[in-house]
Amino acid sequence: EQYVVVANYQKQESSEISLSVGQVVDIIEKNESGWWFVSTAEEQGWVPATCLEGQ
């Protein structure tokens, strides 16, 4: 499942990744806490779901 990044995010923990507007990410896991585990071409990590929008 692919989502587009709609807000920049700077990682704050080692388990997170930074996002840039316009990036496309694959969703691996959706957590009810509002944090999703995603994959980019370069890395995987947790990001806030509020930064993502379905395609």
Rank of each mutant, 00 (worst) to 15 (best):
E1I: 05
E1S: 08
E1W: 05
E1A: 04
E1Y: 15
E1T: 07
Q2Y: 05
Q2T: 09
Q2H: 08
Q2V: 14
Q2S: 12
Q2C: 11
Q2M: 15
Q2N: 15
Y3T: 12
Y3V: 11
Y3L: 06
Y3G: 14
Y3K: 12
V4L: 15
V4D: 09
V4Y: 14
V4P: 04
V4K: 15
V5R: 00
V5P: 01
V5L: 00
V5N: 00
V5H: 00
V5K: 03
V6W: 05
V6Y: 06
V6N: 07
V6C: 08
A7L: 10
A7I: 05
A7T: 14
A7M: 08
N8E: 11
N8Y: 04
N8S: 14
N8V: 05
Y9E: 02
Y9W: 15
Y9L: 03
Y9R: 07
Y9P: 02
Y9A: 01
Q10I: 09
Q10D: 06
Q10C: 09
K11I: 01
K11S: 11
K11W: 03
K11G: 13
K11E: 08
K11P: 13
Q12A: 09
Q12E: 07
Q12M: 08
Q12W: 04
Q12D: 06
E13N: 12
E13A: 04
E13F: 07
E13D: 10
E13Q: 15
E13I: 12
S14P: 13
S14D: 13
S14I: 14
S14R: 11
S14T: 12
S15I: 07
S15V: 10
S15T: 10
S15C: 11
S15P: 10
E16S: 08
E16A: 05
E16T: 08
E16Q: 13
E16Y: 01
E16W: 03
E16G: 15
I17A: 07
S18D: 03
S18G: 15
S18L: 06
L19W: 01
L19F: 04
L19A: 03
L19K: 00
L19G: 01
L19T: 02
S20E: 15
S20R: 11
S20D: 05
S20A: 09
S20C: 07
S20N: 15
V21H: 05
V21W: 03
V21N: 05
V21E: 15
G22M: 02
G22H: 02
G22T: 02
G22F: 01
G22C: 02
G22P: 01
Q23P: 00
Q23M: 12
Q23C: 08
Q23E: 13
Q23K: 08
Q23T: 11
Q23D: 13
Q23G: 06
Q23L: 05
Q23V: 05
V24E: 14
V24S: 11
V24T: 10
V24M: 09
V25I: 05
V25P: 01
V25C: 04
V25N: 00
V25S: 00
V25F: 00
D26L: 11
D26Q: 12
D26C: 06
D26M: 09
D26H: 07
D26N: 15
D26S: 10
I27M: 08
I27D: 00
I27N: 01
I27F: 09
E29M: 04
E29R: 15
E29S: 10
E29L: 09
K30A: 08
K30R: 12
K30I: 06
K30H: 04
K30Q: 13
K30M: 11
K30G: 04
N31G: 14
N31F: 06
N31Q: 07
E32V: 14
E32S: 11
E32T: 09
E32M: 07
S33I: 04
S33Q: 15
S33P: 03
S33F: 07
G34I: 03
G34P: 06
G34D: 09
G34M: 07
G34K: 08
W35R: 14
W35C: 11
W35K: 10
W35D: 08
W35N: 07
W35I: 07
W36V: 14
W36S: 07
W36H: 04
F37T: 03
F37V: 09
V38L: 02
V38H: 00
V38S: 01
V38R: 00
V38W: 00
V38M: 01
S39F: 06
T40R: 15
T40S: 14
T40M: 11
T40D: 06
A41Q: 09
A41E: 15
A41W: 04
A41D: 06
A41F: 10
E42W: 10
E42Q: 14
E42M: 12
E42G: 12
E43V: 10
E43N: 14
E43C: 09
E43H: 13
Q44T: 10
Q44S: 09
Q44F: 07
Q44A: 08
Q44D: 09
Q44K: 10
G45E: 00
G45R: 02
G45Y: 01
G45V: 02
G45D: 00
W46G: 00
W46K: 06
W46E: 01
V47P: 00
V47L: 05
P48G: 00
P48C: 02
A49M: 14
A49K: 12
A49Y: 06
A49T: 07
A49E: 06
A49G: 13
T50C: 09
T50K: 15
T50Q: 08
T50E: 10
C51V: 10
C51S: 07
C51Y: 06
L52S: 02
L52C: 07
L52I: 14
L52K: 02
L52N: 00
L52P: 01
E53K: 13
E53R: 11
E53L: 07
E53Y: 06
E53F: 05
G54E: 15
G54T: 11
G54H: 04
G54V: 14
G54K: 06
G54M: 10
Q55R: 15
Q55C: 02
Q55A: 14
Q55V: 04
